[in-house]
């Protein structure tokens, strides 16, 4: 039997998250006593087979078809469904990104099998039933679950495992697979793309300077923008701020916004409700600036200043300028 891991790529660029899927896949395959297979779907992915082998794949399936010109949930899931049948996969695993969970849900719908999204750990020692722990509330709560199914479908929560290299590469035997697809599977394939921003984005910024309700107004974000610019960072905000229309939703850090992982997160005037916290918790360090010493954000921060952000933030900006000017 085999464990099949879906490798996510965008027109030939392997998603960093796929390394997490393979890391989880290696330990799961070992528990199951099964072979680890990986699947690469569509145009531009065939050059990734060596990387899949390095990540531990014994067999790498390269799926090609005329309609697989770009990502599409129907076409990808239908391809995986047919491949999983062909190789009699005991389980299919992806990482819980937007695409990963979407393809797994499509696969589950097509097979009417249970799908457990965003697992943080999986016990696969019993062939019949697996037990797992998965994320609820964006990670604020954990759920223990069990599934019984002839083919187990799971995704691993994004960032739930730390990606690592395989101790020894897999054989990486390349197998080509051409699924039977038709026009009905092509309707959800990407038609076009629009690039809005280039360079550092909120999710990749090394510094995020964020404001919450305590900032008080849209104009109040001017001092945060100035500080973020000095640090080559990005401005973020809480849900209260976007709900007030002070900042665009693209700036929102949180469960329903962007998940960030900067070197330092400077959270000003943010109380730290769970919806915000789960978006910020992957930050390496957190500095909270808040008038309320009891705020959740202050309790969870590595560093804190208790005071008025409207005075402290400009003082930090001035101090940075002073030091830059003196060197």
């Amino acid at each position: 039997m085999t464990l099949l891991v879906i490798l996510e790529h965008d027109r030939g660029d392997l998603a960093e998250a796929s390394r997490e899927a393979m890391t989880a896949g290696r330990s799961l395959a070992e528990q199951m006593g099964d072979d680890l297979h990986a699947v690469l779907i569509g145009e531009g992915a065939d050059h990734l087979t060596d990387e899949a082998a390095e990540l531990g794949a014994q067999t790498v399936h390269v799926v090609t078809h005329d309609i697989l010109t770009d990502y599409g949930p129907d076409a990808w899931a239908e391809s995986v469904r047919q491949l999983a049948d062909e190789i009699d996969a005991a389980a299919v695993l992806a990482v819980g990104t937007d695409r990963g969970n979407e393809v797994m849900a499509q696969l589950a719908a097509r097979t009417d099998l249970p799908f457990v999204a965003n697992c943080v750990s999986v016990d696969a020692s019993d062939d019949e039933g697996w037990s797992m722990t998965r994320l609820q509330w964006g990670g604020s709560l954990l759920e223990d679950s069990t599934i019984e199914a002839e083919r187990k479908l799971v995704s691993i929560g994004h960032h739930a495992v730390v990606a690592s290299d395989a101790l020894a590469p897999g054989a990486g035997t390349v197998e080509e697979f051409e699924p039977e697809l038709d026009g009905s599977h092509a309707v959800t394939i990407i038609k076009d793309r629009a690039v809005l921003s280039q360079g550092v984005t909120l999710s990749t910024a090394p510094v995020v300077v964020s404001g919450g309700r305590g900032v008080g107004s849209a104009d109040g974000f001017g001092i945060l923008e100035e500080l973020a610019d000095l640090l080559s960072g990005r401005v973020g905000c809480s849900r209260a701020v976007t709900n007030n229309g002070w900042r665009p939703h693209a700036d929102q850090v949180g469960q329903t916004g962007t998940r960030i992982a900067p070197e330092i997160y400077i959270a000003t005037g943010i109380s730290g409700a769970i919806q915000h916290w789960v978006g910020a918790m992957a930050s390496k360090r957190i500095l909270a600036i808040n008038t309320d010493p009891e705020a959740n954000m202050v309790a969870k921060a590595d560093y804190a200043v208790i005071g008025d952000l409207h005075k402290i933030v400009p003082a930090v900006t001035a101090e940075i300028k002073r030091r830059k000017g003196s060197t």
Binding site: L287, A288, K300, D302, Y303, A304, V305, I306, G307, I312
Partner: peptide
Amino acid sequence: TVMLGDSE
């Protein structure tokens, strides 16, 4: 939490 101060 390391407290860095209570003002500017």
